[in-house]
């Protein structure tokens, strides 16, 4: 054993297998088999375990395509994902730029940590905290009425903007993180070179900084868009009755209506959409890595 020099050349798979097997068996049982089972169940009329008779059917998919409701909701969720992603870019990119290129040393480290810290705290709690701010008689309402000379009623709670605000708050740290990583890697001398050759600040931004940070923007966009399209808890809490989206309909199939096969079909359609989006984003991401 000791005679062999490079670790890499030692008989690969047989030595690796005992170390790898437990983790990958676990992933198979809890992730990959369930995803396959979901595809299988989506073609059934009923669950085989419930004792009731079942048969194979395309009905669950036919339901999606024949009733415009599901397609409308999927489009609404895709639009929600797009809007939230755009707001995250508008808000997050400048912040990432300031972090990467303006702040330095310890203050940069501390502020960077502060920006991504909420991201690792409970998402449900953060959505709940917006309910405190947005509801009628909430903080926003009270504060604005204290400042303004006339009486206004701000009741954003249970509206589409409330859902957008909550989701942007939840996901903007992702965009700051991914853009910061690519912006930080841009050599300052490239920016200086552009400036000394006579380019304006705006030209440098458009021709040098944005193209070079594109991988971070795309990574952030993919990381935000995908979970937002599948969100259901945020629209439920902040959207109320206006908060019906594709995700909430899937939730209903599993916890209220108990039509699991239809839920599985709807989930699988969402998975297909998500995979297409990740596939579109992946060339840009691979170039970054």
């Amino acid at each position: 054993m000791a005679a062999q020099s490079a670790t890499a050349s030692r008989s690969g798979l047989r030595s690796a297998l005992p170390l790898l097997a437990p983790a990958y068996i676990w992933l198979t049982v809890a992730i990959f088999l369930p995803l396959s089972a979901m595809v299988f169940f989506s073609f059934m009329t009923d669950l085989p375990l419930s004792g009731k008779p079942w048969a194979f059917t395309l009905g669950n998919y036919a339901a999606f395509f024949s009733q415009s409701l599901y397609l409308t909701l999927l489009l609404a969720s895709l639009r929600l994902g797009l809007e939230v992603t755009l707001w995250c870019i508008v808000i997050g990119y400048p912040a990432a730029y300031v972090l990467a290129k303006v702040l330095k040393g310890r203050s940069r480290e501390a502020i960077f940590l502060l920006v991504i810290l909420p991201f690792w705290s409970n998402g449900l709690v953060r959505i709940f905290s917006w309910a405190m701010v947005l509801r009628e008689g909430g903080i926003l309402d009270t504060a604005l009425n204290a400042v303004l000379p006339f009486k206004i009623n701000i009741d954003l709670m249970y509206s589409y903007p409330a859902v957008i605000i909550g989701l942007v708050h939840s996901y903007v740290p992702y965009m700051v993180l991914t853009c910061y990583l690519t912006l930080q890697a841009i050599d300052d001398s490239l920016i200086e070179a552009g400036r000394s050759l006579g380019a304006t600040r705006l030209q440098v931004l458009k021709r040098v900084i944005i193209p070079l940070s594109m991988p971070g923007l795309v990574a952030g966009a993919a990381l935000i868009f995908v979970p937002v399209v599948g969100s259901f808890m945020e629209p439920r809490i902040l959207g109320g009755r206006t908060g019906t989206f594709y995700g909430t309909v899937i939730e209903d199939q599993f916890v209220a209506v108990f039509n699991w096969p239809l839920g599985a079909a709807l989930s699988f359609i969402l998975l297909a959409v998500v995979l297409v989006i990740l596939a579109i984003a992946s060339p840009v991401l691979r170039r970054a890595a």
Partner: peptide
């Protein structure tokens, strides 16, 4: 392939993973 297999659990929305687990564990 094994390294690539680590990304679906992170990238797929939890709504999909969660409902899939529910169906499979029940089954």
């Amino acid at each position: 392939v094994l390294q690539a297999l680590l990304f679906p659990p992170i990238a797929i929305p939890w709504l999909i993973t969660g409902t899939a687990m529910l169906i499979f564990f029940f089954g």
